[in-house]
Nucleic acid binder design. Structure first.
Lengths: 168, 168
DNA sequence: TTGGAATGTCAACAAAGCTGACGTATTGTC
DNA sequence: GACAATACGTCAGCTTTGTTGACATTCCAA
């Protein structure tokens, strides 16, 4: 069969054809739906949304983080984050404490209830990720991460790298 | 250095630790931002949104598709899609024609103007994808696609597969 | 032929993003 | 000590994109 490409362009560059790139784009689109599907179901039952999940996730990852820091990680405005944060604090999932050194800052922590929801959400999300990893194998996983990292914006990658090797 | 795991659990299963899974989850989150960033900028200038991009993309991919079919691919309600579709039709980017066999159906096509925007958007998105692919290399790309496909819902994967090997 | 299923449209509402303006407390600087 | 800058919260209002509910049109099968 002919691939319509000059013979010197073999497997080595075949992954850069528009066709291959399009498949990657569509794979990314469809996979992201699966990626968020399980947490979305849990959140929906509790009348929270994806925005709450994101806040909870990164507060869990960086306990004591400030509002400003969370803002730059999430890449949203403070008004938008504030709406979400307010409901989480009102509902007793997140605790906000005035900073010791700098009293203008608020340090954010998950309460026991918040931590419980975080576990429920990340368990669900990890289950799917684990199944995908298992199905694809270790080499595929390494490639998966490489491509994703190369796809990030410069600033975003800094956030990712900073987060990356922090203990659980 | 110790990885805190029993010695018989070497590299082979290391990719399934919660730590590794968490990195994958965060990589997916941050990468998706990059994935949509370039089209988003273009769309913003033209006061369209991501939903318009998705509609345009899949109408381009399946010319003559019906509203119902598009609905199940995009995974949204018909009311939500209809709003987007209406503006695209009003603005002359999409043509909607009554079905021959079944007059309830509307068949959707891109106009010349619509096709031009589609090219602009997919060029931008492909550029980033190409850079990521090039940086990661062919083996990584294969793994990337494998993991993404394994991450999809069953039904979603059917849509993806159906789309996959259709000529450009 | 008629009643139900399928397709698509209109209306109203909710979640979550945005900008802009403003208030307050605190910090750091001249 | 005065004053600018920073961190945070909030109000108002707008946009995008999702939702449900109600409805018109068309098709098909009993």
């Amino acid at each position: 069969m002919s691939d319509g490409l000059p013979p010197q362009m073999g497997q080595s560059l075949l992954f850069l054809t528009d066709e291959q790139l399009r498949k990657g784009i569509e794979a990314m689109f469809f996979a992201y739906r699966g990626f968020t599907a399980d947490p979305d179901r849990i959140l929906n039952d509790k009348s929270y949304g994806r925005a709450h999940h994101r806040a909870i996730h990164f507060i869990h990852r960086s306990p004591g983080t400030t509002v400003n820091n969370l803002l730059s990680i999430l890449g949203v405005t403070k008004q938008s984050l504030n709406r979400v944060l307010r409901t989480l604090i009102e509902d007793g999932l997140v605790a906000s404490t005035v900073g010791q050194r700098d009293k203008r800052e608020r340090h954010l922590h998950l309460t026991e209830v918040g931590a419980a929801l975080e576990r429920e959400l990340s368990d669900a999300q990890r289950d799917r990720m684990r199944a995908a990893y298992r199905a694809a194998g270790p080499d595929a996983v390494a490639g998966f991460r490489q491509v994703l990292e190369a796809m990030m914006d410069e600033e975003t990658r800094h956030h990712y790298e900073a987060m990356k090797d922090r203990p659980e």
